[in-house]
C-alpha cells in the first residue's frame, strides 16, 4: 500500500469533486480562523466541530476513518492531560485530584485546536488524491519547483522504504538486533547506504526525464480550473467559521 494513499478514500461526493486548490485554501483559511478564536468561546469550537462533521457527512467519510487517523495527535493528548496535574497557580479539586486552573485552560486550548486542525487535514487528505493535492498547491502559486520536489518525494517514498526494509531484513537475518547505542554504527551504515542509493536513483531519474524532453519545467498535463461557484462552495467552510469569529467579537 502506497504511503501517499493511506488517507485517501476514493469517492464521488461533492467534496471529492471540488477542485483541489479550492479545498486546500478552504482548509488553510479555516485552520487560521479556528486558531485565532479565543479559547474561552466554547460555543464557537462546538460550531466549528459541527461544520467539520457536516463536511464529513457530505463527503461520506466514516467517523471511524477519521478517529483512526487521529492517533497522530496522541502524544499531544497525553501531554495535554499532564499539564493540569503538574501545573502551578490557582488550583481546583476535580474527583479528589488537585489541578491547576491555567493548566486546564492550556490543555483545553491545545486539545480543541489540535483536534479540529487534524480533523480538517484528515478530511482534505481523505477526499483528495495525493497527486491532485499537489496540482492544487501548484494552482495556488506554490512555486513549481517545490511542487515537483514533493511529487518526486511521494513517488519514491515507497521505493526507498522498501529498500530500507530489505536492508533491515538482511541485517536481522544475519542475527543483528539493535539493542543500544553501541549498535549505532550498524544503523548508520544502513542510513549511509540508503543515502547513496537515493542519490544515485535521483541521478538516473534525471537522465530518464532528460530522455523524454525535460528542460526544467513540468509540462502541464492536468489543467484543473475552478469555477466561481466551486470556489464559493469550498470557501463556505472558512467563511462560516469567520462569521462565527466576527459574531463572537461583536457580542464580547
Amino acid at each position: 500500500m502506497g504511503v501517499g494513499r493511506r488517507l485517501y478514500l476514493p469517492g464521488g461526493s461533492p467534496v471529492h469533486r471540488l477542485p483541489p486548490q479550492c479545498k486546500l485554501l478552504a482548509v488553510l483559511a479555516f485552520a487560521i480562523v479556528m486558531v485565532a478564536t479565543p479559547r474561552e468561546w466554547f460555543w464557537a469550537f462546538g460550531l466549528y466541530a459541527g461544520m467539520l462533521a457536516a463536511v464529513a457527512a457530505v463527503a461520506r467519510i466514516p467517523p471511524g476513518h477519521i478517529l483512526r487517523r487521529m492517533v497522530v495527535e496522541l502524544p499531544f493528548v497525553l501531554f495535554a492531560f499532564l499539564i493540569p496535574v503538574i501545573g502551578l497557580g490557582e488550583r481546583t479539586e476535580v474527583l479528589g485530584l488537585s489541578l491547576s486552573v491555567p493548566g486546564l485552560w492550556a490543555a483545553w486550548n491545545i486539545l480543541a485546536k489540535a483536534t479540529l486542525g487534524v480533523t480538517a487535514s484528515i478530511l482534505l487528505a481523505s477526499t483528495t488524491e495525493p497527486r491532485d493535492v499537489l496540482v492544487g498547491a501548484q494552482r495556488l502559486r506554490v512555486p513549481d519547483l517545490l511542487v515537483q520536489i514533493a511529487m518526486f518525494m511521494l513517488r519514491y517514498l515507497d521505493v526507498i522504504l522498501d529498500e530500507m526494509r530489505r536492508m533491515r531484513v538482511a541485517r536481522e537475518s544475519r542475527g543483528f538486533q539493535a539493542r543500544d547505542l553501541r549498535h549505532a554504527p550498524v544503523i548508520a551504515r544502513s542510513a549511509g547506504a540508503l543515502f547513496i542509493r537515493s542519490y544515485e536513483r535521483g541521478e538516473r531519474v534525471h537522465l530518464a526525464m532528460l530522455s523524454r524532453g525535460y528542460s526544467g519545467q513540468m509540462p502541464i498535463i492536468h489543467d484543473l480550473s475552478a469555477t466561481a461557484r466551486q470556489w464559493g462552495t469550498a470557501l463556505a467552510l472558512p467563511l462560516a467559521a469567520l462569521a462565527v469569529l466576527l459574531l463572537g467579537g461583536l457580542a464580547a
Binding site: 497527486r131 536513483r201 538516473r204 530518464a208 526525464m209 523524454r212 524532453g213 498535463i221
Partner: peptide
C-alpha cells in the same frame, strides 16, 4: 530499472510526460 523511468504519480501522467514536453 522501470522505477527510474516511471517517475510520475500515475501511469497516465507518465506516458503523457514525453509528448507533453
Amino acid at each position: 530499472d522501470p522505477d527510474d523511468q516511471l517517475f510520475m504519480p500515475t501511469v497516465r501522467d507518465d506516458v503523457a510526460f514525453g509528448p507533453a514536453n
